[in-house]
Design a protein around this nucleic acid. Structure first.
Length: 233
DNA sequence: CCAGACGTTGTT
DNA sequence: GTCTGG
DNA sequence: CCAGACGTTGTT
DNA sequence: GTCTGG
């Protein structure tokens, strides 16, 4: 699964990854080392006029448009790619409202065999450059206080590296697939399932970090510092 | 027909 | 909104 | 994901 | 134990 991630990359590196339309992001754009559910996160969704990805901030935790209570979003932080096509909460968004969620790392907690301790790992590219997670977004309009825009992260099974830590991982899209993911017409959304697979085994590396990251209130650069010499991948 | 759910994860 | 269950 | 809160009436 | 909040 994916319930915490980082995005501290330079805008120029983000732009190398994704050819997005707006250039209004400052170069120090919100370096974040502990992005947690319910917080506003950067997503890129297709911009109709220019046919290019457009950056927008939305709340992490998808609230289906038909929901009566937006609190449901607290548990809709991930969507299983194996079932996303049919699940009522996600299927409309899969057809009409897909997005890219940029990140340069994410956290997973490895449970010891006796299940007594949980060690967080920071998982990232060896060159620490950003990558794009497959996401869905939604707009909820029942509050009377203007639309609430939200998103969720698609998950899939683990690759070889992630299998050492956890049994799920976020779907990381390859650059060549970005346009198809964002632009496929609604009646072809189901075929996008072929993109929702684990990242190549050598795409990421991982190292253990301090349990300071457990608290969503902490957001500091040292959260990604390795706590020892061990490294996976 | 109407009422009620609609989700993921991990743990027991 | 749409499907399942009663 | 983890942290932190959890509640009202009647009965023990 | 389970839900809410970040």
């Amino acid at each position: 699964m994916c319930g915490r991630y980082t995005l501290a990359s330079k805008v120029s590196d983000l732009r190398d990854l994704i050819d997005f339309h707006d250039d209004s992001l400052p170069d120090d754009f919100a370096a974040r080392f502990n992005i947690a559910p319910t917080q506003d996160v950067l997503i890129l969704r297709q911009e109709k006029v220019h046919h290019r990805p457009m950056p927008v901030m939305v709340r992490w935790g998808l609230v289906p448009f038909w929901a009566d209570d937006p609190k449901i979003g607290n548990r809709m932080i991930n969507a299983r790619s194996e079932t996303v096509v049919e699940k009522p909460a996600f299927r409309a968004a899969l057809k009409y409202r897909r997005c890219l969620i940029p990140a340069d790392g994410f956290y997973e907690w490895h449970r010891s065999v006796d299940s007594k301790t949980k060690t967080p790992y920071w998982i990232h590219r060896p060159d620490r450059k950003p990558f794009a997670i497959a996401g869905l977004w939604e707009s909820w309009n029942k509050s009377g206080a203007g639309p609430l825009e939200t998103c969720t992260i698609l998950t899939t099974g683990p690759n070889a590296l992630m299998g050492l830590i956890h049994d799920r991982m976020p779907v990381i899209l390859q650059q060549k697939d970005f346009d198809r993911w964002l632009s496929a017409p609604p009646d072809q959304a189901a075929s996008l399932a072929e993109l929702l697979v684990p990242a190549p085994d050598d795409f990421l590396e991982a190292w253990p970090v301090s349990t300071k990251v457990n608290s969503p209130a902490l957001d500091r650069p040292d959260l990604i510092d390795p706590i020892d010499e061990s490294r996976l991948g």
